[in-house]
Design a protein around this nucleic acid. Structure first.
Lengths: 205, 205, 205, 205
DNA sequence: AATGAATGAGACTTCATTCAT
DNA sequence: CATGAATGAAGTCTCATTCAT
């Protein structure tokens, strides 16, 4: 390993780190002000530079949100796939998916907020077709888990399955809009209570 | 009732109707494309006129959302207040509030969607301080119902109350983003199943 | 003289009166807010009607200012011509012209203000070429009076004639911007003092 | 002085120069076409750029006039204050103020024209309250000089003081509308003749 | 890598004007 | 005569983007 090669490695790594740091900043700003309401200048300022300078690192504002969202989705699906590949039963799968969802929110909170708020709009752009695909795969995954659970007698059969799906979906993701990593409840603790609420209800017994 | 008086009444009424119709159109467009991403021209086109013509009826784009949101909130709180004034127990109040929420979604779906998506941004404008106030009153109302329910032994005491509140809030309002008045389920039926899910959980017993 | 003819006469007269009243109102508004900063709606409101209604009486906003200015200029030149045709000496002509100027301001104050503020801009429009012509005739008239006065030994010969002309012109017309018909000094009294100041200076002797 | 410091100095200076040059251009255009009748695009074109580009340098069209007018007024009052602080007699103060007025016109001709034509309109905006304040201070300054002159027996006592003030004020400032720096008469020469006219009158003796 | 200045499309808004009623 | 609604051109301003330095 020549010093020269080490140099180019370290600069490449440094560049990747810089990109990641800039994207984290951008995600934070997009999440708190809204993607379309955020100006490139605001993102740049938050990163300590001037508006035009961001274009050295990224092609466009859109490419930033693109990278933010696809990174988040890739990571989320990797986690989901690990769960789905473990051969668990319906109830255990259900619980594990919810836990992974809250962990994903923990790791990618700004990205999840952006996804919640902007994906409907962004999806109109053909470049963001993967948002729609992810959404559809998400639906199939949950419907499959829920249907299996109903068949296995784990979940109630008297509820509209579509309604049930939306209930789960909304319940989990909207949490990103208020979750704070430094709050009193950890992601796993929140997940535990959510699961308990959803499975057993809130009535005292 | 003189003809003159009937005339002025009917034109005043006609004007009010026209305003309402335009606002309904605007709300639809704002809800489907996002308030800030929607251009005034798009609203005008949806109403069958040119961009500038809207300004005969409204002062600004902002005044349109303003009227849309305040009308919706006024109507919602009237319904909530009727429930709160009926002297019901915690569980019945809980159920009635959820029913009224879904009925409000039914009557004001686009407005609710706009409220969900844009209120955080709009609230930065001092003119929209009533959004924050409504949100706070909403929180107090639900916390009071939930706390009373826990005291009365109706609701579980082992759950974080703040988490419980957010769970209810999100569960109810996010429904506006997918609800369709012409869907297979009526607002009251959806409310019934939501209440059942939240109270009793989704596990089969 | 048939009643029919009397009717049409009286309606024609009434129409002319209405026009004049509307123009007086418009002149007032144009003078106080500036012609281009004044909207047609504002003029209409001051006249107790809606914006579009003015177009029954006038072709355009421009035609209003046109009529206001040309009426004023016609009247002013009639007065000037009476003076010029009286065969007075230079000093008496000078004094009489200043008196007539202040009387014109008294009769057409708003029009004079508009003329002062807007004629430079309006004159770019070929339709208002009469403004330039009036201005030139005005200059020739005063230069002739002043030159004659210098030749006759009435006015000082050691002052730049062009400067002197501008001095007179400005001194007289700018008064329109502060003159009020109901103020403590009458137009003739103001004229008298102006003449005294200009002729004899302000030093005590 | 480090090179770094020299750099930052020179760019800051360059920026200030650019601003000043743009403001000079804008003042010229505003003065010749009228502030509200001038479009931002016209100003930009006169500066060799496109309409939107001006907004890199200035917040708004209004902020341009603001800077133009306040710069002019600051400079004018500095000159007046030097005169007022010199302890001259009434007549000498009078003369010095008129000289400084014409020198101010010489240095800030477009700004003075704008001030003459637009201050009444701009003053309606609370942000431009300094225009009214300046006007009032101006009035107090002149009235004080004139009153002192009358008391000292320098100026005639038989003239209305308010009228006298307006006479002076108009006489001096309206000159901005025709003054050209490259004309045959210098600012000081014009001042000299104005003073002579006003003090001694135009009658030959 | 970053700056600073400029671009140009497009947004919101104003307003003189028209016209059916 | 007047109203009320709409038109459409034009104006101010914003902002993603480019590019020479």
């Amino acid at each position: 390993m020549s010093p020269r090669r080490r140099d180019s490695e370290s600069t490449a790594a440094a560049r990747a780190e810089r990109r990641a740091a800039l994207l984290a900043t951008a995600a934070e700003v997009f999440a708190s002000r809204g993607y379309s309401a955020t100006t490139v200048r605001e993102v740049a300022e938050a990163a300590g530079m001037l508006g035009g300078s961001l274009y050295y690192h990224f092609d466009s504002k859109e490419s930033m949100v693109d990278e933010i969202l696809s990174t988040f989705l890739t990571d989320m699906w990797a986690a989901y796939d690990r769960v789905l590949d473990s051969g668990l039963g319906a109830r255990e799968t259900f619980q594990a998916l919810i836990v992974e969802s809250f962990r994903t929110i923990d790791r990618h909170r700004p990205a999840v907020v952006i996804y919640q708020n902007e994906s409907k709009l962004l999806a109109k752009n053909p470049h963001f077709s993967y948002l729609v695909e992810s959404q559809e795969r998400f639906r199939e995954m949950w419907m499959s888990v829920l249907d299996r659970g109903v068949l296995d007698g784990v979940f109630r059969a008297d509820l509209d399955t579509g309604l049930l799906y939306r209930f789960i979906r909304d319940t989990v993701w909207v949490a990103a809009s208020w979750y704070r990593g430094d709050g009193p409840l950890s992601a796993d603790e929140i997940a535990r209570q959510y699961i308990s609420m959803v499975l057993e209800g809130i009535l005292s017994t």
